[in-house]
Design a protein around this nucleic acid. Sequence first.
DNA 1: ACTAATGTCCTTTTT
DNA 2: GGACATTAGT
Length: 695
Amino acid sequence: MPSLPDEDVREVSGNVPSHKDHPILASLNPQQRAAVVHDDRPLLIVAGAGTGKTKALAHRVAWHIAEGIDPARILLLTFTRRAAAEMLRRAEALVRSLPGTKIASGSSGSLRIWGGTFHAIATRLLRRYGQAIGLPADFTIHDQTDSQDLMHAVRTALGLAKTEKRFPQKATCLAIYSRCINARETLDDVLADRFPWCRPWRLELARLFDAYVERKEKSGVLDYDDLLTHWLALLEDPTAGPHIRGLFDRILVDEYQDTNRLQAEILYALSPEGKGLTVVGDDAQAIYSFRGATVENILEFPHHYPNASVIALEQNYRSTQPILRAANAIMADARRAYPKKLWSGRTSGQKPVLVTCEDEDTQAAHVARQVLEHREAGIALRQQAVLFRASHHSILLEAELQRRDIPFHKYGGLKFIEMAHVKDLLAFLRLAENPRDMVAGLRVLGLLPGIGPARANRLMQALEDQGDFSAWTAIKVPQATAELWPALVALLQHLRGTSEPVATQLDRARAFYQPLLEIAYDNPVPRARDLEQIVQVGMQYADRRTLLAELALDPPSSTQDLASPPRRDDDYLVLSTIHSAKGLEWDVVYVIHAADGDIPSDMATGSAEEIEEERRLFYVALTRAKRWLYVCYPLRYQAGHRSTLAKPSRFLSPTAVACFEHLSAACEWPGAAPNAAEESQARRSIREQTRRYWQ
DNA sequence: ACTAATGTCCTTTTT
DNA sequence: GGACATTAGT
């Protein structure tokens, strides 16, 4: 008797009665349907780019609820909060559309699903159950910059800052530390594989990390890595562990290819048998190994859970076939663990265009012009996106867009929240929230004239010994500090005890900080405006603790999200790093700076693995496009008064290039655009005339 | 002890 | 070209 593929058997004879006509399943293809109705055994969905992965996941959530699972017992782990919100929105719409379904909903009307990033969920759980493993209730969270600052403080305290040969920088130290934690690798392995130049410092680094961990504990702070390790510790705790495991009937994980070892261990601990566990991912889109992520998690899933099923989604609903062909050509040389043959039903469509630009200015001008052309043709700005490898790649384009009055939002790169003056303001609140938070304290104290690192450290020690800000009322401070000192102590004492709205608290801190800002920076006006924005942002949060945690875990990703009032109907062009474009799609996509050295980045060509990740990054960029795709690179780069020649990305192999139409963009010229032949003729005649002088 | 100034390294992606 | 570390000066 011929055997049928597992999925088919299960669909017919599974524990769910015939549901071909079920409204949740109506719009799904057979593979998606199999994934949605799969029972509570572990499931891996291998979903290629644009194959309706979000749709499948949202439908599966809705399906669970229709099955009678309590939404509050569903855990949905995503890569960004934005992704979680989108997924929940879709699931909720589906559930509401079901006749006779009433949703157990909170006052906000939304499903009470546990949705968010690993880090956000960890925070929620640790706030609620952290005391089981001895975590203080008022812990504060360090973002990457804070963690680096603390690493720096500890490094200085240990005397490692002034060694004969130069000790690794704070950022490097943190990167090594974080790699050990997230990838679960020993210091020796990490040093050997990724930081060979730091190997002579192995012993000092070990000492530094010990002190760093101890300092974090004393300060009552958690860094990003701690959120994960403490979640895992909670699960391994004999009393808390079973309780946490008992909270969830279904666990769904998006973007599984970009999770790291530590996150996989959390899942193992959360669901040892894989009961109710669904993970979705695409090994061809793994682009976060620099953060410790590994595709091994996907590859090992079926081995770790022997009764796991694997379902592949291969029909692409996003892109036209010509775009898909180009993207597939880029990936043709890559090793693929789960071979997928993506195909599209949309066979017609314009060939993607490879645009060779004279220089960077030409590239910016060309993209701006093309964007307007598409808008004229009826494609809104919001349906168009410009993607690039590094944040600074868009600077020239931003200027050009500003000049032409084209509105845009930029995602990725330096965040609003990372700017020095914003961090300053928030440090006041964080210190009030947790007086032991040394990084926040040193930051606040350092703002005052007359206080440098040495005195700030002593003041923090005094504060730690006494436990509250009254430790600072009697202390003697330098002449230069004396004037402001009482006001600072009063401010902190007030903030510490108050329960007034967090926006009011921010405003008090701002009032104190304003004069200091004017002294410290030569452009205080725009910075002061930023601070007012932060006060506005504060209105959206229930309390100080929530504000601080949310801003540390999921800061507003677009500067413009904050800078302009939320007018939903605004039309704007999207500018984004490729990393931040993950999971999104647009009608028109422009990939700029597709020159070798930018894609792949020169910073990431050290090993074959790194280069492969850059290839996948390029693939992710191309597969964001639905209907039009432009890949641009400048021929000349201006470096000082010298210009260097660039080559197109090495990923644009002859086979790949054949999938593109070709276009040369020259300097923009009023009137007729000069074509290549005309121009070379003009230059030939100049050359001939010049030569007469010496012939 | 703190601030200002000069010299040297690194230059990416993000929870 | 900007961050960072060390050095000299107040």
